[in-house]
Design a binder for these strands. Sequence first.
DNA 1: TGGCAGAATAATGTGCACATTCCGATTTTG
DNA 2: CAAAATCGGAATGTGCACATTATTCTGCCA
Lengths: 245, 245
Amino acid sequence: MVQPRKKVKARPLKGDVAIDKAVYDAIRRAMLMGRLLPGTKLREPALSRVLKVSRERVRKALHRLVHEGWLEAVPNRGTFVPALTIEEVREIYDVRTMLETAIVQRLCAEHDLPAAQRLKAHVSEERQAVRSDDRGRLFGLSGEFHILLAELCGNEQLSRLLRGLLTRSTMHFSLSAPERFHNCAGPHDHADIVKAILARDAKKAAKLMLDHLLGLVEWQSAWQPPPNPVALEEAFRGISAKRQA
Amino acid sequence: MVQPRKKVKARPLKGDVAIDKAVYDAIRRAMLMGRLLPGTKLREPALSRVLKVSRERVRKALHRLVHEGWLEAVPNRGTFVPALTIEEVREIYDVRTMLETAIVQRLCAEHDLPAAQRLKAHVSEERQAVRSDDRGRLFGLSGEFHILLAELCGNEQLSRLLRGLLTRSTMHFSLSAPERFHNCAGPHDHADIVKAILARDAKKAAKLMLDHLLGLVEWQSAWQPPPNPVALEEAFRGISAKRQA
DNA sequence: TGGCAGAATAATGTGCACATTCCGATTTTG
DNA sequence: CAAAATCGGAATGTGCACATTATTCTGCCA
């Protein structure tokens, strides 16, 4: 006799978390869309008014974003959109290189059939995005490729870590060159890396990943952002803290 | 009403940040000292009373600790000391292996004279700690060794990342086996690694680091913590949110 | 006219009171 | 007697009002 009496409300996921995450996502989205330029000050009352939420929610979201490295806070001064130095970007890519070359080497050593299928499926998706000239989708897929590699290692900590690193990598040209998204990464590189992994050629895979990341950072370094303030109402036009489709 | 107070020109660095950091440090210290066993619920009113600060400060510190992975929060339930699975510990050490083998390889390739001197000095310090049988100091030095390697790479991002990883690694046996600190790491391993780095033998250095970390995780895996609740007043005996000597 | 001092204003930081939710003990009923 | 429902107390979540600090504006003086 089983006992279905257990009223295990698996995940209520209250409005609390939902609203907080919505505000957090709204600000993050504005940054990813390049609406908020480096140096912009994020005033709590203004955000509260624009996003139609209480100042406390804005405050909480800002603190979280600061802690995750998206924003910079100065005590009693305010919260600002950071101006990432080229050097910092280089450092982040350097760490990524350490991790991701190790990742592809490991995948060469112990990847299984489902992993191979997911890799091939991803490359296929990227190719299709290129054909249909869907730049937005291609940009998303380019990032997800690196996440996918980490996830295929089956290490949750590794995935989370790399996810953070990747968001911080992309933040730089999200903030500085949002209009140049279409150029971001050569999907051809990804296809070659996958091919090397499937061939279990660890040395080649690591080399390809190294070159790929070096190419990305070099491409980013060639571009310097023009400092320019922006109005918050403009930045959050069309972005709401409420659930959007 | 006027306030003829003299204006402070320097950095007052108000109680805000100081108090917040003090509360944060107090809880972290209690965890590192093994006073808070896995599964313990950290009640905000109790902490507020014990640490003599307002509940909001406790709340803020708890949120930060949750963000950094020290604690786990369940909405509307409370904040808990996590029970790290052996598997999670393995994953963390796996990531550390990826990073640290890359680090020693890089140091073999491009370390300079001051770096070599710092390495030798550190090994010397560890040796001296062993001789004087100072277990507490040796424990600290063992952790700092890995931090030192990261810092010698000159990559700030890398240092911060590894620092977080290391604290999370040590948290496991801080929580589960605080009385076995003295056994933590063989300083002999560190000396061998340094020797390989100074000899610029990248392959050997990487192998030694790999074995070192594998040995650590294996040693930790052999020990399982006994679940046991604890009173907060006991845990924070002698630990204050105020600056202590 | 330019720069400095002081006040007005706005933004950030903090504590408090209240609403909501959860846990546990007691009671009631089949 | 046992299981379930209910009610009371406590802990968490949230908005608000106030204190503190920074910024800007204005007027005065060199």
